[in-house]
Design a binder for these strands. Structure first.
Lengths: 346, 346
DNA sequence: TTGTAGGCGTTATCAC
DNA sequence: GTGATAACGCCTACAA
């Protein structure tokens, strides 16, 4: 165990197996072309010396590091945790390591991407930024390795992308609310007005309420900040007024939905009898509210894994036209909107 | 932008600046020793050619990659998310990239560590495993780069470590329960019996109840699995029996505590009037129960950051004796045990 | 099938 | 101050 002080190199192995270094190299890279007997001798020497190719020297020749980068706007919370988890698992399955980074502000993102593109060490990179502005796009275009965009699309560039079908998910939820739960009035509680996900969900909500219901009142649209506490405080004074037969709250994420349910409980509004509450994302909280949350599962782990797939596919076929994948969210019916379908309760 | 097809190298820069490659190298590594005028000429050429040193060639000479590894038992959930976040931030502050990996089972951990130790690419590595058995320890000893153990200590090896002072945290909580809340009976709900954190917390609980209270009844000790749902189901049928003046549940994590509070609400047991409930970790859920959870904040983000610090310090001084750091958890008093101290409510 | 020799892009060690 | 030149450890024509 760890006997020799300095790492064995090809020439050490070659000496011990009484062959040349090229033969050793061949045993490692194209074993089939070398004579059975010599091969075994070399392999023995490799094992005896506990030899492993030096990654740097290898990278210098092959220009590959077997490492993929993952850039996210933040690492805080369950959302990114799932994404990283999916990406990490798939990356390892394919023999790659994953290096993660985060950049919260736009300036940070620029600095980070700039830094990454110079360090040639990454074989490819998956990027999710809060804002895909011109400067960021220019930075992404400078990468000489495959770039996959998460949750956004860059037209006109050689970038693959993977997005979540927000509209599909929101549509499924709204249909459930209107058709299965008989909802006639919806109170929409979104994140910031500028948030693209919130925008998409609101648009769908408005469209479906116009098309299959009495429409969505502008006075029933609120923009908060995705936080539990904010939603709880905000709802405390209003939830009484929201209550009513066929009334529902569509919160743009689970945490706000949980806050609203808590406010309802506090003020004695019964969910779902007097008010339905729906969330979005299906994070861990969704199972921890009473009643449990009806929500939309966003396949974050899949998104991470798919991103790694796309990086690798492009590594294999650099000139194939860009692929844009869309992942389908899934309606998860629990108890907070009535209409329980036991089979779907998670 | 990106005009030239192939990356510029030192010799390209040297040619353009009409100097030798050694001068270029010096400008990059020890600018002070080169003549002001030539330096400027070289720097200009570097900018014009958009030159960046090749990481592989650099690593080959310097044997450094500016990359640190982080190995965790899992990536799922907020717990690890915080750890990664802290580690990532600090690593970047010090000019390092972070590569994360996870290995759930013992076998996976062994395979992963084995793989990592051969890839010399990492300058150091921080490792957290669920079980520090002999095989794992042997693997860790084989690393030729600094290894920092998270949440565990390996005696006799040259490994730094950073742990959470579980006992201190549990003690603070128990004191608060006994002294400030007047608790006389504690129901302990832990994770698996083999879990080291659970063991430590239980021991403290037992000791303090014996020392400053009527003792902890064996029939009041339960071992579940750290999951919300399990605790909820389990508590549903018993929480009525647990209720009583001066009675408290000490759950070994916040999720179980949240499940127990939910069960109490469902069965009409008032918290904290009839039953105090305390958690551990201070994850996001702690703020999302009604009443909000009194718990112990475990500085996960700090632990990640500290681990990176230790790796770097050892890189600078490889022969310094191993350091074992202990991070202090902090009591967070909210509402679930009575005795609200407004200043501490988060 | 195997060995020799050259090069990948840096940094380090010498002379000058 | 600066410039040849030799490593670093590996891969790969090409020659044998």
């Amino acid at each position: 165990m760890g006997a020799e002080r300095h790492r064995a190199s090809v020439s050490d192995v070659a000496k011990r197996a009484r062959v040349s270094i090229s033969t050793v190299s061949r045993v490692i890279n194209r074993p089939s072309v070398v004579n059975e007997e010599t091969r075994q001798r070399v392999e023995l020497a490799i094992r005896e010396l506990n030899y492993h190719p030096n990654v740097f020297a290898r990278g210098l020749m092959l220009r590959r590091s077997e490492t993929i980068g993952l850039v996210l706007p933040d690492l805080h919370g369950e959302f990114y945790s799932e994404l990283i988890r999916g990406a990490n698992r798939r990356a390892h399955e394919m023999g790659y390591s994953l290096v993660v980074s985060s950049a919260k502000s736009d300036a940070e993102a620029q600095a980070l991407l700039h830094g990454l593109s110079r360090r040639t060490m990454l074989d490819g990179v998956a990027v999710m930024v809060s804002e895909l502005n011109r400067r960021i796009r220019a930075l992404l275009a400078e990468f000489r390795v495959p770039v996959v965009i998460l949750d956004g699309v860059v037209e006109g560039e050689m970038h693959d992308s993977v997005v979540i079908d927000q509209r599909g998910g929101a549509t499924a939820l709204m249909r459930h609310l209107i058709d299965a739960c008989g909802v006639r009035r919806v109170i929409f509680v979104g994140g910031l007005e500028t948030n693209v996900d919130t925008i998409a969900r609101l648009e769908v909500c408005r469209a479906l309420m116009a098309q299959r219901g009495p429409g969505l009142a502008d006075s029933d649209v609120y923009h908060l900040d995705y936080e539990y506490e904010t939603a709880y405080r905000f709802a405390l004074s209003r939830v009484r007024g929201w209550a009513g037969a066929g009334h529902a709250v569509f919160a743009a994420n689970d945490e706000m939905a949980a806050g609203i349910i808590a406010a309802a409980v506090t003020t004695g509004v019964r969910v779902p009898e007097e008010l339905s509450v729906a969330g979005f994302d299906d994070t861990r909280v969704a199972r921890m509210t009473r009643p449990a949350l009806t929500t939309v599962r966003v396949p974050l782990s899949d998104m991470g894994a798919t991103a790694m797939d796309l990086v690798c596919r492009r590594l294999e076929a650099p000139d194939r036209p860009p692929m844009h994948l869309s992942l389908n969210p899934q309606l998860v019916v629990r108890e907070s909107c009535g209409a329980v379908r036991p089979a779907a309760v998670g």
